[in-house]
Design a protein around this nucleic acid. Structure first.
Length: 434
RNA sequence: UCCCGAGUAGCUCAGGUGGUAGAGCAGACGACUGUUAAUCGUCGGGUCGGGGGUUCAAGUCCCUCCUCGGGAGCCA
């Protein structure tokens, strides 16, 4: 007789049939002659297995007593619908096999733990339902990003991680690069994205970036994933149109396809239902005036602090653009605002509910001489930017782009307090392992 | 780098004004035929982050160092 293997997520198709499920024990309960195994196999929901002493071989029944948390098991039984089971289906066990025993010292128990302890055990923490749910939302966001751009004719370009050029002034990780001197781990793919946009029109990058900043906040990682679209012939208004359409798409797609995971995470999805284009667009100068009215001591020319951001976003039910910052507060490659040369054509997109900046974007300076002046003004090494200036020398073009922080976006959609839970193995100032 | 906060059992924590440690969970054994982080009974479990000081006596007070967390700055 052949054996039918099934994953927990597929059990609805097997009601009244006998199947074999393989996975790991996440809870054990025993009540004399009836016992329960709650097991997990990576599906969205766990599976409750019901063992009744007189309905299974003596040997298998006794095997239950030796089971421990996180043992891997092979369970055969009849699939049946039952309201008392999480997920709506359970398995009436007729055979129980132990594949890999787990010693009694499994660190993560079904109770509260401290974050530091959990991060030390991240390789095991990943198995818990909450972490599985976050990982599945992250995957949905990633796939949605690819689908969104694929449907719109964008080309995905993978930019180098080892670079000589420096995109921004934030901290850099350095490494020896043969006889070429120092190379840096990429903190943005944007400059390469601009070159690619001149070749391919509309592109996006999707890759890891590295910041050696000694940041210790719930919004920062030293290694994080960033998505950086770059579009030829897009001005800043079109850039923002695309961003709000993009972010709305990601959120709505998670709402429809990852409802079970968001429920597991106890996310208040009413806060996400409202995320639909258009988003408010607040000029920086207006934002400063509003903030001053609310009691902030911000002055024109200052960048918005974290408190200012929260204050500004509090009035809205969806993400908010803050547009056209002072030139001195922003990166050298941003295009000067023709209506107010003190500012540049850019926007930060601030997620509501206090999740902060999830996108930074701008129209790029396309005037060769202005860009050159700006590089000199910032004191950046000119020889490293020769190829970047070539993009303005040989057929310059209007173009814009933005960078979306993947973990921040996932944290916001999931309603998770700290972005370190939104990547499988977070890299932070005090943590490189596991 | 700066400002707060925390280090006590495997884990989460409690330990007014100093008198050599306690709970819950986890674990072991037992009971229970539908449990949902099951429940009930019994038992085992500790260099109180390191060092120094005050004191008859320090988990507790003082100094110092270490580690970690949160926030600021920077940014996604």
């Amino acid at each position: 007789m052949s054996q039918t293997f099934a994953r927990i997520g597929e059990l609805a198709q097997f009601v009244s049939q006998t199947v074999t499920v393989r996975g790991w024990v996440s809870h054990l309960r025993s009540s004399g002659k009836v016992a329960f195994i709650v097991m997990r196999d990576g599906s969205a929901t766990p599976l409750q297995c019901v063992l009744v002493k007189k309905q299974m071989p003596e040997e298998d029944w006794e095997r239950f007593a030796s089971l421990t948390l996180e043992s891997s098991v092979v369970v055969t039984g009849e699939v049946r619908a039952d309201d008392r089971a999480p997920g709506g289906f359970e398995l009436g066990v007729s055979a129980l096999g132990l594949f890999g025993a787990s010693p009694l010292d499994y660190p993560i128990q079904p109770k509260e733990h401290g974050v530091d302890f959990l991060l030390d055990n991240r390789h095991l923490w990943l198995r818990s339902p909450r972490q599985v749910a976050i990982a599945r939302v992250r995957h949905e966001v990633e796939q949605a990003i690819h689908d969104f751009f694929y449907e719109r004719g964008f080309l995905r370009v993978d930019t180098p991680i080892l670079t000589a050029a420096i995109g921004e002034r934030a901290g850099l990780f350095e490494t020896e690069y043969f006889d070429e001197g120092t190379a840096y781990l990429a903190q943005t793919g944007q400059l390469y994205g601009e070159a690619a946009a001149a070749a391919f029109g509309r592109i996006y990058t999707f890759g890891p970036t590295f910041r050696a900043e000694k940041s210790k906040t719930r919004r920062h990682l030293t290694e994080f994933w960033m998505i950086e679209p770059e579009m030829a012939w897009y001005d800043q208004a079109m850039n923002q149109d695309l961003q709000e359409e993009f972010v709305s798409y990601l959120v709505q797609r998670c709402l429809t396809r990852r409802a079970a995971e968001l429920k597991e995470l106890e996310r208040d999805t009413s806060k996400l239902q409202t995320v639909r284009a258009p988003f408010p667009r607040i000029p920086y100068t207006d934002a400063v005036a509003t903030l001053q009215g609310k009691g902030s001591d911000i002055k024109w020319g200052d960048d918005l602090g974290a408190e200012d951001e929260a204050l500004l976003v509090a009035d809205y039910d969806r993400p908010v653009f803050v547009c056209n910052y002072p030139k001195e507060a922003k990166a050298f490659y941003m295009k000067e605002n023709p209506d107010d040369p003190r500012t540049v054509l850019c926007a930060d997109l601030l997620a509501h509910e206090g999740y902060g900046e999830i996108i930074g974007g701008s129209q790029r300076e396309d005037d060769h001489d202005k860009l050159l002046a700006r590089i000199r003004h910032e004191g950046l090494p000119l020889d490293a930017y020769g190829w970047y200036l070539d993009l303005r020398k040989y057929g310059t073009f209007v173009h814009s782009g933005f960078g979306l922080g993947l973990e921040r976006t996932v944290a916001w959609i999931c309603g998770v307090q700290h972005i370190r839970e939104c990547i499988a193995f977070p890299r932070m100032m005090h943590r490189v392992r596991p």
